[in-house]
Write a protein that binds this DNA or RNA. Structure first.
Lengths: 290, 290
DNA sequence: GTTCCGCATGAATCGATAG
DNA sequence: ACTATCGATTCATGCGGAA
């Protein structure tokens, strides 16, 4: 196993296989705890079946990064994605989950339907179960003003599974109930804080003490977090909390987490930090090279 | 025009037409500022083309239980909705908008795809443009704990239009910044601060006026509001802020607002209060009768 | 006139049970 | 086997009654 400083973005794991070179057999590919250089379609095809517990990924959005995958046209996105999804389905364990972070693109003033078509394809053609749609509410997204739409402040986090009985550790993602960014001030802001912002209000005190009795609460399917990420050098990087949330939720320690569109490797590093086996695949060598 | 106390839920406008009776011609139907008894399919068929500026509605969600409470089976939902959507498209002005509040249902451990299928149908078969998807993040959702999912805390607010050039008054829905919360809760975004008290409470109304004069910002496409409504007697009623937001955003004073699934008439009353012409259609006579 | 406290109730989901 | 119905679970909120 290659060792390296997980949080030093300069020190990346070595390239273990370049698909442009001679193919190697799966048993020869030391794919665990590695970020592998190559198109995830061909790399995943070399992995054994039922070896991955969780896939968390944010694929290139349609037409978003033209210089990498040749700029996938929105109308061709589903066809482009499907063979990769078939590999994901094959290598995922029956108890595994697949979390897909994706967003529509506005084309000609309209929201394109390729994401909806993708959900239908993953369900009907690939065989995934569409379990849930989490909403990532980006609290500090980029400002902007357009004539026919407001600031886009959310993205889809689509949860698919291979079977109805998948692994889910809900207690692992319970949040402190005093986290006011999670539990907003719906009522308190109106009734309590605005009257006596000092916090000595007996009603506020009562509420806080009631909260202290139950220190943690289950989240909902709306994840309310800022889009900040640890390494700011790359554009489309995950914020760390995102893979962390789903890794804790859908895997145990020692399980294997894959990001087929690894990018700057946030999912990979988060998995390693959390004691999971990390696997990354990235086609752009500048993200993989040491 | 029938006159009545808009906020007295007991005093409803008279039934102007019972579709079970002899049909009447459109010019004989005094449909403006009325809540009309009947199936919106047949009632809308009697309205002239291009007469509505905005449709804001929350149709009955799909119900897995067949034929109870008139529930529509999820597998039949798109077929049930499409002829009604065709009428909506016909009577909507070219500059008009159609806002659809709807939510999925979990069936057999999966999210049912009827809403996604509906979007595709509205776009490809009916001819609507799918402009935007607003997220209604409900601050309070139904309780419950399940093995494979968290509580569902959001609903879709789908914005369709008839043409690319639709009416949109963004400045009409700007929200004030409350700097006292910004100081206290640095993590909260501006969008979270957009929560406005319902306005029915005179105390909070005064507080809104205190905010006036401060800086205002445009909202995002995530609306973070509680699901409560003014008249608690009826179930499944819109909260008032919802039609208010879209009526201000997509119409001017004097424009015509339709809710084909009027229910307790929240959209209708809000439209009248805001100086718009209101039109409601409701199939359950107990909601329409005086 | 206020504040405090109790309690009914929601666009729900799942698994068990009954027909 | 398959479908329809029922009960347990869960908790923020608003309202009314009482202090």
């Amino acid at each position: 196993m290659t060792t390296f400083n997980l949080w030093d973005t300069k020190a990346r794991p070595a390239i273990v296989h370049d698909p442009s070179q001679e193919p190697i057999s799966p048993q020869d590919l030391p794919w665990q705890n590695q970020i592998i250089l190559g198109d995830c379609l061909t790399v995943m095809a070399q992995l054994p079946a039922n070896c991955i517990d969780l896939i968390v990924t944010s694929p290139p959005y349609a037409d978003a990064r033209k210089h990498t995958y040749g700029g996938v046209d929105p109308d061709e996105y589903v066809e482009w994605f499907r063979p990769r999804a078939e590999q994901m389905h094959r290598i995922l364990k029956p108890t595994g989950s697949f979390v897909l972070n994706i967003k529509e693109k506005a084309v000609g003033g309209e929201r394109h339907t390729y994401v909806l078509d993708l959900i239908a394809s993953l369900k009907k053609e690939v065989g995934f179960l569409w379990v849930e749609e989490y909403i990532w509410h980006k609290t500090t997204s980029m400002p902007g003003k357009w004539k026919y739409r407001f600031r886009d402040a959310w993205e889809r986090l689509l949860h698919f599974s291979k079977s109805k009985e998948f692994k889910m550790n809900q207690s692992a993602v319970m949040v402190p109930i005093m986290d006011w960014t999670e539990k907003r001030l719906t009522n308190m802001s109106r009734n309590d804080l605005s009257r006596q912002p000092s916090g000595t209000n007996p009603k506020t005190g009562r509420r806080i003490s009631a909260w202290l009795g139950r220190d943690k609460v289950y989240p909902s399917n709306v994840l309310h977090k800022p889009p900040i990420c640890h390494n700011t050098g790359h554009s489309a990087a995950f914020p760390e909390w995102l893979p962390e949330f789903f890794i804790k939720l859908f895997t145990d320690e020692g399980d294997t987490v894959l990001d087929p569109f690894s990018g700057s490797g946030t999912t990979f590093r988060t998995a390693r930090t959390l004691g999971r086996v990390g696997v990354g695949i990235e086609i752009r060598s500048e993200h993989v090279q040491r």
